[in-house]
Amino acid sequence: MGWLSEALGSSIGKKFVMAFTGIGLILFLIFHLVGNLTLYGGPEAFNGYVHTLDIVKPIIRVIEVGLGLVFIFHIYNGIKLWWENKKARPNDYKISGKSKNSTLFSRTMIQTGSIVFIFLVLHLATFWWLFNFSGEPHEKGDAYYAIVVEWFQIEWYAIFYVIAVILLGFHLNHGFQSAFQTFGWNHKKYFQFIQKFGTAFAVIMALGFASFPIYFLFFYGGN
Protein backbone atom coordinates (compact mmCIF):
# COMPACT_ATOMS: atom_id res chain seq x y z
CA MET A 1 0.00 0.00 0.00
CA GLY A 2 2.98 2.29 -0.57
CA TRP A 3 1.08 4.01 -3.33
CA LEU A 4 -1.68 5.02 -0.94
CA SER A 5 0.55 6.59 1.65
CA GLU A 6 2.45 8.32 -1.13
CA ALA A 7 -0.79 9.59 -2.59
CA LEU A 8 -2.09 10.87 0.74
CA GLY A 9 1.28 12.36 1.60
CA SER A 10 1.47 14.40 -1.61
CA SER A 11 0.43 18.03 -1.64
CA ILE A 12 -2.86 17.14 -3.29
CA GLY A 13 -3.32 14.11 -1.02
CA LYS A 14 -3.00 16.23 2.10
CA LYS A 15 -5.60 18.60 0.76
CA PHE A 16 -7.81 15.63 0.07
CA VAL A 17 -7.47 14.50 3.68
CA MET A 18 -8.35 18.03 4.82
CA ALA A 19 -11.40 18.15 2.60
CA PHE A 20 -12.56 14.63 3.43
CA THR A 21 -12.23 15.06 7.18
CA GLY A 22 -13.66 18.56 6.88
CA ILE A 23 -16.80 17.23 5.22
CA GLY A 24 -17.03 14.61 8.00
CA LEU A 25 -16.85 17.32 10.63
CA ILE A 26 -19.43 19.40 8.79
CA LEU A 27 -21.83 16.45 8.93
CA PHE A 28 -21.15 16.11 12.64
CA LEU A 29 -21.83 19.81 13.16
CA ILE A 30 -25.19 19.50 11.44
CA PHE A 31 -26.27 16.60 13.70
CA HIS A 32 -24.91 18.36 16.74
CA LEU A 33 -26.81 21.56 16.04
CA VAL A 34 -30.03 19.82 15.28
CA GLY A 35 -29.73 17.81 18.50
CA ASN A 36 -28.95 20.88 20.52
CA LEU A 37 -32.05 22.61 19.27
CA THR A 38 -33.92 20.45 21.78
CA LEU A 39 -32.56 22.89 24.39
CA TYR A 40 -35.28 25.26 23.24
CA GLY A 41 -37.83 22.59 24.03
CA GLY A 42 -37.01 22.88 27.73
CA PRO A 43 -35.39 20.44 30.20
CA GLU A 44 -37.58 17.48 29.30
CA ALA A 45 -36.95 17.64 25.61
CA PHE A 46 -33.20 18.06 26.00
CA ASN A 47 -32.80 15.46 28.73
CA GLY A 48 -34.94 13.10 26.73
CA TYR A 49 -32.67 13.60 23.71
CA VAL A 50 -29.56 12.87 25.78
CA HIS A 51 -31.21 9.81 27.34
CA THR A 52 -32.02 8.52 23.89
CA LEU A 53 -28.36 8.79 22.97
CA ASP A 54 -27.51 6.98 26.22
CA ILE A 55 -29.57 4.00 25.17
CA VAL A 56 -27.41 3.46 22.08
CA LYS A 57 -24.22 4.26 23.95
CA PRO A 58 -22.06 1.52 22.34
CA ILE A 59 -22.83 2.83 18.88
CA ILE A 60 -22.20 6.39 20.04
CA ARG A 61 -18.84 5.33 21.45
CA VAL A 62 -17.79 3.88 18.10
CA ILE A 63 -18.88 7.04 16.35
CA GLU A 64 -17.05 9.11 18.91
CA VAL A 65 -13.82 7.22 18.30
CA GLY A 66 -14.25 7.72 14.56
CA LEU A 67 -15.02 11.36 15.07
CA GLY A 68 -11.97 11.70 17.28
CA LEU A 69 -9.79 10.23 14.58
CA VAL A 70 -11.31 12.56 12.01
CA PHE A 71 -10.59 15.52 14.28
CA ILE A 72 -7.03 14.38 14.84
CA PHE A 73 -6.37 13.88 11.13
CA HIS A 74 -7.90 17.22 10.29
CA ILE A 75 -5.87 19.05 12.92
CA TYR A 76 -2.63 17.16 12.35
CA ASN A 77 -2.82 17.63 8.58
CA GLY A 78 -3.82 21.26 8.94
CA ILE A 79 -0.84 22.05 11.12
CA LYS A 80 1.48 20.09 8.87
CA LEU A 81 0.25 21.95 5.80
CA TRP A 82 0.57 25.28 7.53
CA TRP A 83 4.10 24.54 8.63
CA GLU A 84 5.24 23.24 5.25
CA ASN A 85 3.60 26.10 3.43
CA LYS A 86 5.33 28.58 5.68
CA LYS A 87 8.63 26.99 4.70
CA ALA A 88 7.79 27.37 1.01
CA ARG A 89 8.29 31.13 1.42
CA PRO A 90 11.10 31.68 3.89
CA ASN A 91 11.34 35.43 3.20
CA ASP A 92 8.02 37.17 3.05
CA TYR A 93 7.21 40.33 1.15
CA LYS A 94 7.79 43.69 2.74
CA ILE A 95 4.49 44.96 1.40
CA SER A 96 1.58 42.58 1.56
CA GLY A 97 -0.85 42.65 -1.31
CA LYS A 98 -2.81 39.71 0.03
CA SER A 99 -5.94 41.69 0.85
CA LYS A 100 -6.20 42.57 -2.84
CA ASN A 101 -6.19 39.04 -4.16
CA SER A 102 -7.74 36.76 -1.54
CA THR A 103 -10.29 36.74 1.27
CA LEU A 104 -9.45 37.05 4.94
CA PHE A 105 -11.29 33.78 5.59
CA SER A 106 -9.08 31.85 3.21
CA ARG A 107 -5.87 33.22 4.69
CA THR A 108 -6.69 32.64 8.35
CA MET A 109 -7.69 28.98 8.44
CA ILE A 110 -4.88 28.10 10.83
CA GLN A 111 -5.80 30.92 13.22
CA THR A 112 -9.54 30.28 13.21
CA GLY A 113 -8.88 26.57 13.36
CA SER A 114 -6.57 26.95 16.36
CA ILE A 115 -9.07 28.96 18.36
CA VAL A 116 -11.80 26.51 17.49
CA PHE A 117 -9.49 23.74 18.69
CA ILE A 118 -8.93 25.45 22.06
CA PHE A 119 -12.65 25.86 22.29
CA LEU A 120 -13.11 22.21 21.46
CA VAL A 121 -10.89 21.13 24.32
CA LEU A 122 -12.73 23.35 26.76
CA HIS A 123 -16.05 22.22 25.36
CA LEU A 124 -15.16 18.56 25.81
CA ALA A 125 -13.85 19.19 29.28
CA THR A 126 -17.06 20.86 30.31
CA PHE A 127 -20.12 19.36 28.62
CA TRP A 128 -18.89 16.10 27.17
CA TRP A 129 -16.88 15.04 30.25
CA LEU A 130 -19.61 16.03 32.67
CA PHE A 131 -22.32 14.35 30.65
CA ASN A 132 -20.40 11.12 30.33
CA PHE A 133 -18.12 10.60 33.26
CA SER A 134 -19.10 12.78 36.21
CA GLY A 135 -21.63 10.17 37.20
CA GLU A 136 -23.97 12.78 38.57
CA PRO A 137 -26.36 13.37 35.68
CA HIS A 138 -27.26 9.73 35.43
CA GLU A 139 -28.65 9.77 38.94
CA LYS A 140 -30.68 12.92 38.54
CA GLY A 141 -32.65 12.66 35.30
CA ASP A 142 -32.80 16.36 34.51
CA ALA A 143 -29.21 17.29 35.26
CA TYR A 144 -28.04 17.55 31.61
CA TYR A 145 -30.13 20.57 30.98
CA ALA A 146 -29.05 22.07 34.28
CA ILE A 147 -25.38 21.66 33.45
CA VAL A 148 -25.91 23.51 30.19
CA VAL A 149 -27.74 26.32 31.91
CA GLU A 150 -25.15 26.56 34.60
CA TRP A 151 -22.20 26.88 32.21
CA PHE A 152 -23.88 29.22 29.78
CA GLN A 153 -24.67 31.58 32.55
CA ILE A 154 -20.98 31.96 33.28
CA GLU A 155 -20.22 35.15 31.39
CA TRP A 156 -16.65 34.45 30.22
CA TYR A 157 -17.60 31.00 29.10
CA ALA A 158 -20.58 32.23 27.13
CA ILE A 159 -18.61 35.02 25.49
CA PHE A 160 -15.78 32.71 24.55
CA TYR A 161 -18.32 30.26 23.19
CA VAL A 162 -19.88 32.92 21.00
CA ILE A 163 -16.52 34.14 19.70
CA ALA A 164 -15.40 30.60 18.99
CA VAL A 165 -18.48 29.67 17.00
CA ILE A 166 -18.26 32.89 14.99
CA LEU A 167 -14.68 31.95 14.10
CA LEU A 168 -15.97 28.49 13.34
CA GLY A 169 -18.27 30.23 10.85
CA PHE A 170 -15.25 31.94 9.29
CA HIS A 171 -13.53 28.60 9.09
CA LEU A 172 -16.56 26.99 7.47
CA ASN A 173 -17.11 29.84 5.05
CA HIS A 174 -13.82 29.03 3.41
CA GLY A 175 -13.72 25.34 4.24
CA PHE A 176 -17.05 24.38 2.76
CA GLN A 177 -16.45 25.53 -0.81
CA SER A 178 -12.77 24.70 -0.50
CA ALA A 179 -13.60 21.04 0.02
CA PHE A 180 -15.57 21.01 -3.21
CA GLN A 181 -12.70 22.64 -5.07
CA THR A 182 -10.28 20.08 -3.63
CA PHE A 183 -12.46 17.20 -4.71
CA GLY A 184 -12.43 18.74 -8.16
CA TRP A 185 -16.09 19.65 -8.09
CA ASN A 186 -15.76 23.07 -9.60
CA HIS A 187 -18.02 23.65 -12.54
CA LYS A 188 -18.66 27.00 -14.18
CA LYS A 189 -22.38 26.62 -13.69
CA TYR A 190 -22.55 25.40 -10.12
CA PHE A 191 -19.54 26.60 -8.22
CA GLN A 192 -20.89 30.06 -7.45
CA PHE A 193 -23.93 28.40 -5.90
CA ILE A 194 -21.69 26.15 -3.82
CA GLN A 195 -19.79 29.18 -2.58
CA LYS A 196 -22.97 31.02 -1.64
CA PHE A 197 -24.43 27.91 -0.06
CA GLY A 198 -21.22 27.50 1.93
CA THR A 199 -21.48 31.03 3.23
CA ALA A 200 -25.13 30.54 4.16
CA PHE A 201 -24.25 27.29 5.87
CA ALA A 202 -21.43 28.96 7.81
CA VAL A 203 -23.75 31.74 8.95
CA ILE A 204 -26.44 29.28 10.02
CA MET A 205 -23.95 27.19 11.99
CA ALA A 206 -22.42 30.20 13.68
CA LEU A 207 -25.78 31.77 14.54
CA GLY A 208 -27.27 28.43 15.55
CA PHE A 209 -24.57 27.56 18.03
CA ALA A 210 -24.14 31.15 19.24
CA SER A 211 -27.85 31.33 19.99
CA PHE A 212 -27.56 28.93 22.94
CA PRO A 213 -25.21 30.89 25.20
CA ILE A 214 -26.92 34.13 24.19
CA TYR A 215 -30.30 32.67 25.07
CA PHE A 216 -29.24 31.27 28.39
CA LEU A 217 -27.22 34.33 29.35
CA PHE A 218 -29.77 36.99 28.48
CA PHE A 219 -33.17 35.50 27.89
CA TYR A 220 -33.45 32.41 30.08
CA GLY A 221 -36.09 33.00 32.71
CA GLY A 222 -34.70 30.57 35.27
CA ASN A 223 -32.37 33.19 36.74
Partner: peptide, 9 residues
Protein backbone atom coordinates in the same frame (compact mmCIF):
# COMPACT_ATOMS: atom_id res chain seq x y z
CA UNK B 1 6.55 24.55 -3.74
CA UNK B 2 3.83 24.83 -1.10
CA UNK B 3 0.44 23.20 -1.40
CA UNK B 4 -2.77 24.78 -2.50
CA UNK B 5 -5.13 26.03 0.20
CA UNK B 6 -7.68 27.43 -2.22
CA UNK B 7 -7.19 31.12 -1.47
CA UNK B 8 -7.42 31.76 -5.23
CA UNK B 9 -4.83 34.54 -5.07
Amino acid sequence: FGSCTNTYA
